[in-house]
Design a protein around this nucleic acid. Structure first.
Lengths: 182, 182
DNA sequence: AATGCGCATTAACCCGGGTTAAGAGGAGCG
DNA sequence: CGCTCCTCTTAACCCGGGTTAATGCGCATT
């Protein structure tokens, strides 16, 4: 028994048109989503009304508000489609029950959480130690498609800066490229 | 079978005097540590030689370099005692084997990873959205003892700023306190 | 008492990013 | 065609934090 099988047997399909939300901050959506097609972003609305982007999601990504489950709270972020998207939706209860019954699923869940944690740790490291310009360059290097598909506004919010600042950074980078080679 | 029992049966005790390291960046230490007594910090040395503090550890905390295990890599950070400390050391292999055999342990591991992930997510949120002054105030509110026991230098490195900046922030805060009440 | 060391404070200067606002280029639509 | 909306760019100004360096202070050592 694996997570894939669980999905095949118990997941519902959820289709979203561009701009539609899967769930919003404050909702009590207790499901795991797996992206089949499309592109989405998970984002916070901060107390001061500003937006901060947690992550982008491409086909194959899984997401769900863990805190909505772990301690019975509400979703802490929003999930919206940047392009038409199709998701598989699986109640967390089904997943956790699966983990109780199957070692394989438990192992997969542990694996998944480990990977998730390490990605977050990597991001924390970058936020603490790298200037915005370098964070941008790394993002470009590691996921060039994303830069194409997402507005500069959203890239900036993901990097933790404003679109204006990102525009300046891009200019500086291309200047030092042009002037740099001798 | 629980993690506590595993520890009782298989863990070794490791004692550290103030300033001694449990492991260092680059080591291949594949153990889980549980703090019994003392105070420790986990920190990175950045490429430019600067230090960045990942977390402080008080009795009851667990830690270990997940990436040293998850993908057979080396430790990505250092663990050092800020005060004399006593740790329980358990090989990860024992823990993972335990999780394979016991649902209870698997559940505890999942629980632990979930909690770990949510703490990181919280920190990411704060790094992205809060100014340094507010991050400091939150830290003071949520863990006042820590502020007492740790040098201002380390507090600053944990907050992602320099000790100089933290000193300025403290001054500003106490000014706005004194001037603030009317 | 004198020396040295680590830690905290303060000041002066610089720079990156935030803020606001203006303008430029496309894309869609009447 | 002109209009609007959206995205990106650029400029001007401000401010927080980094950097460096000087100073002060407690504490340990001798």
């Amino acid at each position: 028994m694996s997570i894939d099988q669980l999905l095949k047997e118990h997941a519902q399909t959820k289709s979203l048109v561009k701009g539609a939300h899967a769930f919003r901050q404050g909702d009590r959506d207790e499901s795991l989503y797996v992206v089949q097609t499309g592109l989405l972003k998970a984002y916070y609305i901060l107390p001061d009304g500003k937006e901060s982007i947690k992550t982008f999601l491409k086909p194959g990504s899984m997401i769900g508000s863990l805190s909505a489950n772990y301690n019975g709270g509400a979703c802490t972020f929003n999930l919206v489609a940047l392009q038409d998207a199709r998701l598989s939706q699986l109640p967390f209860t089904v997943l956790l029950e699966g983990a109780r019954k199957s070692h394989e699923i438990a192992r997969e869940v542990i694996e998944f959480l480990l990977a998730l944690y390490m990605k977050k740790e990597q991001r924390e490291y970058e936020l603490l130690s790298l200037p915005a310009a370098e964070r941008y360059q790394r993002l470009c290097a590691e996921d060039p498609d994303l830069i194409e598909q997402v507005t500069q506004n959203d890239i900036a919010l993901y990097l933790g800066i404003t679109p204006v600042a990102l525009s300046r950074i891009k200019k500086r980078l291309q200047l030092s490229e042009d002037g740099g080679h001798h």
